[in-house]
């Protein structure tokens, strides 16, 4: 099994407050890793370390995070985020841009200006995110004037356009209705052929449905990491068992 990201002894802080304690995880390539745990357990902080968004809100880290063997804490965050894309909890399309421009913006931010180059990529990404059929006739509409589920798929298309290798998803379906959630889950299943996906979720059924591996976080610590069906059927740790059985959290 090929390892895409290797996290070694990671501590994360907000000011003096330590929120992640000595996390070590190997994230396999072209698989889906789900991160579960009660709220406040540090799961969002963890994935925000992987594309260095943690430092945008003033956080700091200690430890190593290797992306294809290269320590990403020492590279330029702008370069890094091209390779490690992110989908946020609440859909955040750019309301002042059209649907087309929302997807194209990542390309333009990275220097692609030629419309002939951009148009096919936008179409491809909207197809990949299963949004094309719904919006192909209204590409000039504002990115904010579609439903919440469509907005989230637009955000996924926007992330895909930059052609990342890893996609981080921070509870991507938690603000959506059940039908939209199903669509997002199907999409994740499709995407893992080409991308390494790390998804944070508080919904255990969702973790069970979409992921190959599951990590359970509790109070800033990694409690257990294993194949998803193992975690949900026979976890080796008592806390994990309590959590997946719904006894707390």
């Amino acid at each position: 099994m090929e390892i895409k990201i290797s996290v070694k002894n990671l501590d994360a802080f907000y000011g003096k407050n330590k929120v992640l304690h000595n996390i070590s995880i190997d994230i396999p390539k072209n698989k889906v890793l789900a991160i579960i745990g009660p709220s406040g357990c540090g799961k969002s902080t963890f994935i925000r370390c992987l594309n260095r968004m943690h430092e945008v809100v003033g956080g700091t880290i200690k430890g190593e995070i290797l992306l294809d063997g290269e320590d990403l804490t020492k590279t330029d965050p702008v370069l890094l985020r091209k390779r490690v894309g992110m989908v946020f909890q609440k859909p955040n399309p750019f309301p002042s841009m059209s649907i087309f421009d929302n997807v194209a913006t990542g390309l333009r931010l990275n220097g692609v200006r030629n419309k002939k180059q951009i148009t096919p990529i936008v179409e491809k990404c909207l197809k990949q995110s299963a949004l094309w059929d719904e919006v192909k006739d209204q590409l000039n509409k504002s990115g904010a004037n579609i439903s919440g589920g469509q907005q989230q798929r637009l955000c996924i298309a926007r992330t895909l356009a930059v052609d990342p290798e890893v996609i981080l998803m921070d509870e991507p379906a938690s603000a959506l209705d059940p039908i939209s959630t199903t669509k997002i889950e199907d999409l994740i299943f499709q995407l893992k052929k080409d991308y390494t996906i790390v998804i944070v979720t508080h919904n255990m059924q969702q973790a069970a449905r979409v992921s190959d591996y599951t990590a359970f976080f509790y109070m800033g610590k990694l409690i257990e990491l294993d194949e998803t069906n193992k975690i949900f059927t026979s976890p080796s740790n008592k806390q994990t068992e309590d959590y997946v059985r719904g006894r707390f959290g």
Partner: peptide, 17 residues
């Protein structure tokens, strides 16, 4: 895709500057 080892291109330097 070709795995671009974080190779910065000209545009990257331009936008950083």
């Amino acid at each position: 895709m070709e795995n671009g080892m974080m190779k910065p291109d000209f545009f990257f330097y331009r936008k950083k500057i």
